[in-house]
Amino acid sequence: MTDKLKTAIERLYATFSYYPSNGTMEGCPCCLSSTDKEKIHTKELRQLDSDDLSRYAFKAMTTWGNTNDFKHYLPRIFELLSTTDFIVDTFVVLGKLHYAKWKTWPAEEQKAINDFLMAWWIDSIKHQNYFDNDLFIEIYKLFETINPLLDNWPITFDNNSFKNLIDLLDSYYYDLIKISNKSEGLDQAAITTLQMWLTNKKELLEQRFFYYETIDNEFAERISNALYIIEHST
């Protein structure tokens, strides 16, 4: 985990600390058991784990509690989501922000979330050994622009940023450019911006192909395929 992500998580805790735990939080009796309700109140916020919070993260605000209740648990849910194999999908959790109309929240809260999302994105690009397409799409939806994601994707060779670039092209590119409905994924403007950004990486890919051809033939083949995609699709 990068120091920037650690700092962003701590900022979430500080920003949303004004929202207390609600021991009488209402929930749909058909959807929730007494055990579900007990789990989220038996420990301190930072001690709650994935098993404790997964049910709430899925049901928050729709059938369990209100926006202020969600704000109380948001820091811990986002911490688990970004640092562990959280049970609930990224699109479900981040979709709660849309549901809660987060862009009407106080400016300080919006900034804390923006900073967290960007720190998570940078951490993912640097350290994960695969391109997190769900994270890419969901942050794009929340920001309503692709530019911050691409601007904060420097390509270096001492981390996984280059390998993630190849994985995007080799595994997700065609699916991404087929999406034209903004409610589902990238809109046309974002697709065009992505294509231009990728075209500018062509020379870099050519250089790294010759480098990896002598030490990792399988990865060199993936780079070759990525180059073909850039040359024929962008």
Rank of each mutant, 00 (worst) to 15 (best):
187 D>C: 10
100 A>T: 10
77 I>F: 00
149 L>M: 07
37 K>I: 08
224 S>F: 12
1 M>G: 14
59 K>F: 06
48 L>S: 01
140 Y>E: 09
207 Q>D: 15
98 H>V: 05
32 L>W: 11
81 L>M: 14
148 P>W: 04
110 Q>S: 07
27 G>E: 06
198 L>M: 07
208 R>L: 08
74 L>S: 01
114 N>T: 11
184 E>H: 10
166 I>L: 07
162 F>P: 00
50 S>G: 15
130 Y>K: 13
230 I>A: 02
227 L>V: 10
12 L>E: 03
21 S>M: 14
34 S>F: 04
225 N>P: 02
162 F>H: 01
67 T>Y: 03
133 N>Q: 14
96 K>T: 01
145 T>L: 00
29 P>S: 12
31 C>V: 04
12 L>R: 06
106 P>E: 10
221 E>F: 09
221 E>T: 11
199 T>Y: 09
132 D>W: 13
150 L>S: 09
176 L>F: 11
197 W>M: 01
148 P>D: 02
175 D>N: 14
89 D>S: 13
81 L>R: 00
42 T>C: 10
65 G>R: 03
29 P>F: 07
94 L>V: 07
155 I>N: 05
43 K>L: 14
208 R>D: 02
98 H>W: 03
228 Y>M: 12
206 E>F: 09
189 A>N: 13
204 L>A: 10
133 N>D: 10
142 L>M: 07
214 T>W: 01
106 P>Q: 11
14 A>Y: 05
176 L>S: 11
89 D>P: 00
100 A>Y: 03
3 D>W: 02
218 E>F: 11
195 Q>A: 11
14 A>F: 07
14 A>P: 01
189 A>K: 15
110 Q>D: 06
223 I>S: 03
127 H>N: 15
45 L>P: 01
62 T>R: 13
223 I>V: 09
147 N>P: 00
